[in-house]
Each structure stands twice: as C-alpha cells, then as structure tokens.
C-alpha cells in the first residue's frame, strides 16, 4: 500500500479513536468498527479498480476533514445522552461552542501540516519539507489533543495546550501579531475548560473587583 494512503487511513482511524474517547464501550466500538469497515471497503474497491493510491489517499483525507464538524457534533450529542443530568459548570453550551470554534482552525492547521508532509509548498530539499511539515502537523495536533483532555486530565491537557499553542505561534513567527494573541486566547480557554484555579476569576466565585 502506498505510504500516503497508509498515512491518511491511519489518520482517519486515529481521529475516530480520539473523538470517541470516553464514550461508553458499545457506542465507541460501534463507531470505530463502522469506520474501519468503510476504510477497508474503500481501499479494496480502489485496488480492484486499479485507482491511483494517491487519489484514494486524498479522498480518504477529504472525507475525514469534511466530516470533522459533524463528528464533533455527534460526539457532543452522544456525550450528552450518556451523561444527562451530570453536566458540570465547564460543560455548558457556550463552552462547547467555544471548544468547537477553537478545534476547527486547529484541525485545519493539522491538515495544512499534512499537506506539507505530502508535498505541497516549496522547499529547498526533502529534509526541510519533512521538518516543517511535521512541525506544522504536530504542534496544532498537540494543542487540539490538549484542549480535548483539559476537562478530564487538567494538568496534562493544559501543559499540551501551552506547549502546542506557543510552538504553533512561533512556527508562524512572521505573523506573530496574530498568532501570539490567538495562542493566549487558546491557553485562556484551556484554563477555563480545565477548571484549574489559576483563571483570573475562579470558576464558581465572583470576579475580582
């Protein structure tokens, strides 16, 4: 199997694993098995037809990226249905909307990094391409994972967000006047989401005068 196809199929599987984390076993396994089957059928059909592997890889990637928003909505709905009556202060609708609003650009940055690894953009040599591509791929991915983990593992999640967001901002140093404030916003949101008592106005307490 072509390396690009292996990579995109792996990404699609990893994404399903990520957004189904902490769901009840039955729901989680059902979604993972269904996507596994879909990916297998797509590769099998492409191989049978003799379609180019790179084209199939791009289609798998497109299907994953274009479905991210629906995946997140599905995850929120599935999460709500199993935790009804246990919604905490950090699980309110504004927090969920904020979470999605920050996840979408982060995942687009991840896609951009993947594009670099796969060959888009102009670089002097292959090593430079891989180095920049992986940096652009990993930094926002770490931020996104950190943001996801903030509620369940606050310190780990926040650490990942701080590291990832600042690295992402520094990677795009030529537009730091935009990326640094955005990184600060992401970190602030992560602190709020984590519920740690380092937010300027602590959750559940009146704002300081």
């Amino acid at each position: 199997m072509n390396a690009a196809l292996t990579l995109t199929v792996g990404m699609a599987r990893s994404w399903v694993t990520l957004y189904t984390l902490r769901l009840p076993l039955e729901i989680r396994e059902s979604r993972r098995s269904e996507i596994d089957s879909d990916l297998w059928e797509q590769q099998w059909l492409a191989a049978r037809r003799g379609d180019p592997a790179l084209g199939t890889a791009i289609e798998v990637l497109s299907r994953m990226l274009l479905g991210i928003f629906d995946d997140l909505i599905w995850r929120l709905e599935a999460g709500v249905s199993v935790t009804k009556g246990q919604i905490s202060v950090n699980d309110t609708w504004p927090m969920r909307i904020g979470f999605i609003a920050l996840m979408v650009p982060l995942l687009l940055l991840v896609a951009n990094g993947l594009g670099m690894v796969l060959g888009s953009g102009e670089f002097d040599n292959f090593q430079e391409q891989i180095l920049w591509g992986l940096s652009f791929l990993v930094a926002p991915l770490v931020t996104a994972v950190g943001l996801w983990l903030c509620r369940t593992r606050p310190k780990l999640g926040l650490g990942l967000v701080v590291g990832g967001a600042l690295t992402t901002a520094l990677l795009m140093f030529w537009m730091a006047f935009i990326t640094v404030p955005l990184a600060v916003v992401v970190i602030a949101f992560a602190i709020k989401r984590s519920g740690l008592a380092i937010w300027p106005f602590r959750p559940g307490t009146p704002r300081a005068a």
């Binding site: 699609a12 399903v16 979604r31 269904e34 996507i35 879909d38 797509q42 289609e59 497109s62 299907r63 994953m64 990226l65 274009l66 479905g67 991210i68 928003f69 629906d70 995946d71 997140l72 909505i73 599905w74």
Partner: peptide, 11 residues
C-alpha cells in the same frame, strides 16, 4: 466528485 464525508454519513 467526492464520497460523502465519514462524519456526515454516519451521523
């Protein structure tokens, strides 16, 4: 041009 996205289809 494209197959329906995973998330959209399975949702």
């Amino acid at each position: 041009r494209l197959l329906t996205a995973h998330g959209t289809l399975y949702k």
